[in-house]
Computed example of a mutant assay.
Amino acid sequence: MPLITVTYASQRRSPSLKKDIAETVTALTARILRKDPKVTAVIVRQADAADWFAGGASLAEQGLASYWIDVHVSEGTNTKDEKAAYLAAVFDRMAELIGPLHHETYLHVDEVRGDAYGFGGLTQEHRYVAAKLDVPPQRGAV
């Protein structure tokens, strides 16, 4: 149930680009990090390439694109190898979508504690325990 925020800057324009980015990130997150796409939320924001500076010059001046992706997942649910594969796959696919990428392009997999993270009013820890007990998770239970 990750929450993913994508901020990108690119010279490319397409009516479907934001949707394409959201679908791509969701699919890669499902395939590589094993996260259920039905409970994955993605926020996509575009920044002006003239306002994004890397290496002392704007991306517009350099003719390059970049992104900052922040992915929140429950702590301990992914291995180092999965996270490395995810970073590489996202980088390759985003280059196809938004153009040649500046080397200073970032993705952060933020592992948060299950007792401090959740959706629908329930923590991930609560959902985990309910699954182990084979009972449906309910709000209001501690």
Rank of each mutant, 00 (worst) to 15 (best):
K38Y: 01
V39G: 03
L33H: 11
L59V: 07
D81N: 11
G140P: 14
D134H: 14
L28R: 10
K38I: 09
Q62Y: 01
E23T: 13
A22V: 07
E125H: 13
L87H: 12
W68K: 07
P37G: 14
A116F: 11
L59W: 00
D110M: 07
L101I: 09
Q124K: 03
D115I: 07
F119Y: 15
Q46G: 09
V135N: 01
Q138V: 13
A88K: 15
K83Q: 14
G99R: 08
I32Y: 04
A85V: 04
V71I: 13
A49N: 02
A30V: 08
Y128S: 11
T29A: 04
I21W: 11
V6K: 02
T105Q: 02
A54Q: 09
A65W: 02
D51E: 13
F53R: 11
A131L: 08
L3P: 00
E111L: 05
H126I: 03
L17C: 13
R139V: 10
T24M: 12
S16K: 13
V109Q: 00
G56K: 10
T5K: 13
D70V: 11
H108G: 00
Y8H: 03
A57N: 14
A130L: 03
G55H: 04
W52H: 04
Y128L: 09
L17R: 11
A50F: 05
G114Y: 12
K132G: 06
A49L: 00
E111C: 06
M94G: 04
M94T: 08
W52R: 04
Q46H: 09
K38N: 15
D51F: 03
W68H: 12
V109E: 03
F119V: 05
K38V: 14
T105S: 15
V39A: 11
L33A: 08
A141L: 10
R13P: 00
G121I: 04
L59D: 04
A88E: 14
E96R: 07
L64Q: 07
R13T: 13
W52F: 10
A54I: 12
T79C: 08
V112Q: 12
